[in-house]
């Protein structure tokens, strides 16, 4: 203790800092890193469980080869998955930003509206949405209620009139049809956007009102630039959430392969490939967006 007391303040502080983060360092190196290394090593080895214990034979890139060229659906699921995530991302962000703007206004019943909009935060990942086998009973109800809310057709006709490119129209229509899923995936993003909107000082709007700015100008010149850091956080959160969701098809496929399919080696190889792809996409998207982020100060 005496030695500690005699250290210069800076060193003292860095020791205290290390003590504070030591649980994580311990966990990372003792529990987290080893499984990753093991997975990488399983992906290039053949595992045999014999009476003598675990035997490994080096097989090089065979498992990767199998995953890419032999496995019937891996490649397709892989690219479909990437495509879906990248297509869902703008939909979720656009919707959650819009919803947050709406919930940030003052109106009667705002508290109830907020409570309902955040409900997916606790239910989205849960079984309530994903139980296909329970659909039978609800299907009967769904048939009658489909037409109640925006059916795609009306919008489609409207967009056709505007003569927009067909791919774009298809994307929007697809988005509207999947609106329930988009809404359910947006709970936390709405929460984060709303928190961001609350942190914009009112004085900015007061000043701009005196200068005669319209609501539209206010949004693009004040709200939007101040929200860019929040958008970045939400983009990255959404990517992680979609890629690593427990009901993500590829995540499930990889998990199934380990126990009932092509074996643990192949499953590991798939997991490694998937991890690299996810990390790459998050870094690229995050890197690109961070150029456009506006920070105060």
């Amino acid at each position: 203790m005496n030695i500690f007391k005699n250290l210069p303040l800076r060193q003292k502080k860095s020791i205290i800092g290390i003590i504070f983060i030591s649980p994580f360092l311990f966990g990372f190196f003792m529990f987290f890193l080893a499984p990753i290394i093991q997975t990488v090593s399983f992906s290039v080895n053949e595992l045999n469980i014999s009476r003598l214990g675990l035997e490994t034979n080096f097989v090089g890139l065979d498992h990767y080869n199998f995953a890419f060229s032999v496995h019937p659906v891996f490649i397709r699921t892989f690219f479909e998955n990437l495509l879906y995530v990248l297509l869902d991302l703008p939909l979720i962000l656009f919707f959650s930003f819009f919803a947050a703007l709406m919930l940030n206004q003052k109106f009667k019943g705002r508290l109830i509206a907020r409570a309902i909009f955040f409900l997916p935060v606790i239910l989205a990942s849960s079984a309530v949405i994903g139980m296909d086998s329970a659909q039978y009973a609800t299907e009967i109800l769904e048939q009658t209620s489909e037409s109640v809310f925006l059916s795609g057709e009306f919008i489609q006709v409207f967009l056709m009139e505007l003569q927009l490119p067909e791919d774009f129209i298809g994307y929007i229509i697809d988005g509207i049809e999947r609106l329930p899923e988009v809404i359910r995936a947006s709970g936390i993003q709405i929460l984060i956007f709303l928190a961001g909107l609350q942190s914009v000082p009112d004085s900015y709007f007061e000043a701009s009102r005196i200068e005669g700015a319209t609501t539209w100008e206010n949004f693009w010149l004040i709200t939007f630039p101040l929200m860019t850091p929040v958008i970045l956080i939400n983009v990255i959160y959404t990517l992680i959430d979609l890629f690593l969701a427990q009901d993500n098809e590829l995540v499930e496929l990889i998990q199934d392969e380990a126990f009932v399919g092509a074996g643990y080696g192949v499953s590991s190889a798939m997991a490694v490939v998937y991890f690299i792809a996810v990390a790459f996409i998050i870094l690229v998207v995050g890197g690109l967006l961070s150029r456009y982020v506006f920070y105060q100060e």
């Binding site: 990372f28 529990f31 987290f32 080893a34 499984p35 990753i36 093991q38 997975t39 399983f42 992680i240 890629f243 690593l244 427990q246 995540v251 990889i254 998990q255 380990a258 643990y264 499953s267 590991s268 798939m270 997991a271 490694v272 998937y274 991890f275 996810v278 990390a279 998050i282």
Partner: peptide
């Protein structure tokens, strides 16, 4: 980094460890 590791990558080694 721990955030972007798919759960598949660690689950079975976790089990064995």
């Amino acid at each position: 980094f721990t955030l972007i590791v798919p759960p598949n990558m660690v689950l079975v080694p976790y089990y064995m460890n």
